[in-house]
Amino acid sequence: MRTSMIVTAIAVIAGGSASALAATPAAKPLAFNPPALTSIPKGKFGAEVKLGENIFRHTTVYAHGIIGDALNCSNCHLNAGALADSAPMWAAYTAYPTYRAKNKKVNNFGMRLQGCFRFSENGKVPKLDSQTIVALEAYSYFLATGAPTGAKLAGRGYPKLAAPPKPATYAAGEAVYKQNCSLCHEADGSGQYVRGQTVFPALWGSKSFNWGAGMGSIKNAAEFIHANMPYGVAGTLSVQQAWDVATYIDSQNRPQDPRFVKSVAETRKKFHDNKFSMYGKTVNGHVLGAQK
């Protein structure tokens, strides 16, 4: 009785009814379509947006000397960051500032981009007022034209993926990789290049993302793969295959986590102590994260 009276009082203060308040459903993600790149405005701002697009598409060229691997932003954020369910930039831009458990602080969008350079690009961290960060912010802002700030947009991040029907294994993932991934990414995961420019990105090794990157999580990798890979025929892998191949890819050697402290064991305990990280685990007789 008392709880009912409190709910009624709150509803009256808010200008509504108790039944409406109690029955209010959770907001559904809003649909959004980013503007066409042909509508980038003229003038100095448009030039900055275009620079951001170029950095995003051709990071190895436009951020040469900043990144430490051979990846372009568009390798993980497909269609130059405009594709839904591929961590599109228009959905990310409107979600900041927000708290991030990764660094345990509220981040603005520029700080989030800095994290990408540190981990996914295995590189240096550009200053917030650097041309690189400002141009990428301008490009993301343009893609988010008309999107509501702070709203949950459909297509943000990667679609949630059900748990695999059976435990994912390295051996099963290797078979999936050989059949579906090696043609583009090579058998050794090194990727493909033309005139020194990345065509298909390295999935492990010195030219790939480091252990601190989001793709170093089997869960994140499986969600991305299931929604977007193989390139051009997305959706052809089963849930089980996505988890298996993500496990295989994330069980390979890659650059060290830049947050490394004291030892691999200590670093795992502090940053990777979860079931989706292979960092610090032994695979084929080698401790992942340890230098060979």
Score class of each variant (00 low, 15 high):
92 A>E: 13
145 T>R: 10
116 C>R: 05
131 Q>P: 04
41 P>M: 04
112 R>N: 13
265 A>F: 03
8 T>A: 15
53 E>F: 09
128 L>P: 08
175 A>P: 02
73 C>K: 00
286 H>T: 04
216 G>Y: 01
73 C>P: 02
224 F>K: 10
268 R>V: 12
132 T>Y: 07
44 K>E: 14
138 A>F: 00
222 A>E: 00
26 A>K: 11
35 P>H: 00
190 S>E: 03
246 A>W: 00
174 E>F: 07
185 H>N: 09
146 G>Q: 04
130 S>H: 02
89 M>N: 09
172 A>Q: 07
284 N>R: 07
208 S>N: 07
282 T>N: 14
95 A>T: 05
88 P>H: 02
44 K>Y: 01
74 S>F: 00
141 Y>P: 00
180 N>D: 09
116 C>D: 08
283 V>Y: 14
142 F>E: 01
1 M>E: 11
283 V>G: 05
174 E>Y: 10
238 S>V: 02
289 G>C: 10
262 K>S: 15
257 D>G: 10
176 V>Q: 07
121 E>P: 00
153 L>Y: 06
88 P>Y: 03
115 G>K: 06
29 P>K: 09
235 G>P: 02
284 N>Q: 03
18 A>L: 01
27 A>L: 13
41 P>S: 07
262 K>N: 13
142 F>A: 06
224 F>V: 05
68 G>S: 04
109 F>Q: 07
210 N>C: 06
153 L>K: 06
209 F>Q: 11
177 Y>I: 01
44 K>R: 13
17 S>A: 09
273 D>Y: 11
8 T>V: 06
135 A>C: 05
50 K>F: 06
84 A>I: 11
219 K>N: 12
234 A>E: 11
151 A>P: 02
64 H>R: 14
291 Q>F: 03
130 S>V: 13
239 V>N: 08
105 K>T: 14
11 A>C: 03
66 I>G: 08
79 N>Q: 15
5 M>K: 14
42 K>V: 15
92 A>V: 08
71 L>E: 02
161 L>V: 04
139 Y>E: 03
279 Y>A: 05
89 M>A: 15
287 V>P: 06
106 V>W: 08
45 F>R: 14
289 G>I: 07
11 A>M: 02
19 S>F: 08
228 N>P: 06
213 A>Y: 05
17 S>K: 04
195 R>T: 06
292 K>R: 13
260 F>G: 11
101 A>F: 05
2 R>T: 15
222 A>K: 03
240 Q>V: 02
31 A>N: 11
19 S>M: 11
91 A>E: 03
214 G>P: 04
56 F>V: 00
260 F>V: 14
287 V>W: 06
117 F>L: 02
55 I>H: 10
195 R>A: 13
100 R>L: 15
171 A>Y: 11
53 E>G: 13
205 G>Y: 00
170 Y>K: 12
272 H>T: 09
185 H>Y: 05
113 L>A: 10
29 P>V: 01
95 A>M: 09
108 N>Y: 03
24 T>Y: 09
256 Q>C: 12
255 P>E: 04
57 R>H: 05
237 L>I: 04
178 K>V: 12
90 W>Y: 15
262 K>R: 12
226 H>R: 10
107 N>K: 08
111 M>I: 14
230 P>F: 07
256 Q>H: 11
178 K>A: 15
157 G>N: 01
178 K>P: 01
87 A>R: 08
